[in-house]
């Protein structure tokens, strides 16, 4: 299957975030244990989508790419949205991903629980930023693509072998 990015879509890669305004759509493909976070202000149609890999930057020396970490990416993306004219009081979040993709007889892998820890840190950081979460599709053992429509704030979740879900 070929992943088609339509001209009105902006692709958000792994460990990246992007901000845009309706009628654009922001798309991030193949979230596994990573988490995607869509922030939206319906009054200005300004939205941001982040694809974070890890929960907590304080555990790493190399913080060269801030967009990789939940605790740094979200405040950075929020600041850029406000700079472009989004209203803080109107912002709400939708999140997806945070799966455990691999199964193994080895307990060590599931003990790391990276997907769950990513989701927990995203929730905590959004709470600290005062942004309510109004939709979530997290956990499980399958990959997800997020298509974030900045005309209405809908987030379409595409998976393999499941119907498309809108949060």
């Amino acid at each position: 299957m070929e992943a088609v990015i339509k001209p009105e879509e902006v692709k958000v890669g792994i460990a990246e975030w992007q901000v845009a305004r309706g009628p654009w759509r922001l798309v991030t493909l193949g979230l596994g244990s990573c988490v995607g976070i869509a922030l939206y202000d319906p009054t200005s149609q300004i939205g941001g989508l982040a694809h974070i890999m890890l929960p907590d930057s304080s555990q790493f020396q190399d913080r060269g790419n801030r967009a990789k970490f939940a605790d740094l990416a979200l405040p950075d993306m929020l600041a850029e949205m406000l700079r472009r004219g989004a209203r803080r009081s109107m912002l709400a979040a939708k999140i997806a991903g945070g799966a455990q993709m691999f199964t193994s007889g080895d307990r060590h892998l599931s003990l790391l629980n990276i997907g769950q820890r990513n989701t927990a840190m995203v929730r905590q950081t959004l709470q600290e930023l005062g942004v309510p979460i109004i939709g979530a599709d997290t956990g499980g053992n399958y990959g997800r693509t997020m298509i974030f429509d900045l005309l209405n704030g809908d987030v379409h979740i595409r998976t393999i072998g499941r119907p498309v879900k809108i949060i």
Partner: peptide, 8 residues
């Protein structure tokens, strides 16, 4: 999905 599998 390849992206989800490789990153994870």
């Amino acid at each position: 999905m390849l992206g989800a599998v490789l990153s994870s």
